[in-house]
Amino acid sequence: MDFSFSEDQRSLVQGARAYFSGRYGPEVLRRLDLDGLCNPEIWKGLTEMGLTGLLVPSEQGGMGMGLVEGALIAAECGRVALAEPLVDTALIAVPWLISRGDTEALAKIAAGEKRVAISHVINPWLNDGDGTPLESIDPLRHLTTVEDAENDPFLLDLGALMSAAQLIGVGDAMLSQAVEYAKIRTQFGQPIGAFQAIKHQLANCVGAIEFAKPVVWRAAQAMQDALPLAPVHVSHAKFAATDAATLTAETAIQVHGAMGYTYEVDLHFWMKRCWALAGAWGDRAFHLRRIDHAVLGGEGNKWPLAIGPEHTFS
């Protein structure tokens, strides 16, 4: 029993965070938003970092990592509100293709030559497709319609897990933007962050995010270990991460005051990502129903969840 990340996992995160934060600041997001284009150089950079092939087996030229590492990188993508659909291709499509024994595209994905996004009936569009465009409130998600969406539960769980992980990073980022603003904005002769009315709201966000994190990591490990109850843990993760990020988004705009309502302040990129991901791959109600079924399902329960102090990891 060891609920901690390995040295390798920690350095993977540190490496990705250093790479992203040096290159994909808000100025990049603004340029992409204004140009309405993806910059191919960015995908090239992600490929060189090995991130497109993170979960691709080494035989196909990837790093052969697992879903825990995938979730950790998804959180880093959320932290920078990455515009490129790296999560859709590398962290959702790749493990789904592997689960189906469909390895044909993997080498090209790892090499950065191919992007694959898979649509699920629960959200029948693609973030990165070539159908008719649909306009998302998140200007950095390029949604298009699809003809045929999949209806595979494993795909749904992958999408939900990686969305939950992104929401953790999105929440962390919004919180630190609000905190930095509260330190520099002064009123009544004080930084507004000195007032308890601000402090306590931000402290609530820390609590929500910090207690959602272990739920997400536990879900990632459960999926990686292919536990029969992994879908329940994924729903718990998506539910907790959605609530934490939503609370943080609303708190962050409130702390920014009227500035938070402007395009000029960066917050809105993360807030819009939060809104999009909150509903993607199963919304709050969908995941609550799945947990409800496991906890209160009674006879014929598809996910007979053992409940009680001795069942923390049952």
């Binding site: 004080q190 601000i198 402090k199 402290a203 820390v206």
Partner: peptide
């Protein structure tokens, strides 16, 4: 909540 705000988030004391 004050402790969290001041020590974890680095917000200033009143």
């Amino acid at each position: 909540r004050n402790i969290i705000a001041e020590r974890l988030l680095g917000l200033p004391r009143l």
